[in-house]
Amino acid sequence: MSNQWPLWEIFIRSKQGLDHKHAGSLHAADAEMAIENARDVYTRRMEGVSIWVVESKHIHASNPDEAASFYDPANDKVYRHPTFYDLPDELKHM
């Protein structure tokens, strides 16, 4: 039997108020151990205040081959951005 521990993806919140950000991955036998390993591996220099771990096999990713159909259609929808709207300078607080 292969005794390789499963791979986990590690997300770290570097300080209160920020999102958790992907830091890397590591091997651990269970979630508890993954959190502790993440603490020792990825926060040795006070890089974090909160840790999420997700077993890598549970991550589903979009397919880069479909990037064109996925992301390009957003290109021509500038009306989603506030600068699209032409308003007089006198208008404040908007």
Partner: peptide
């Protein structure tokens, strides 16, 4: 016994 635990015991 494994890199992750090497780091842990060193800590």
């Amino acid at each position: 016994p494994i890199l992750e635990q090497d780091i842990a015991i060193s800590n």
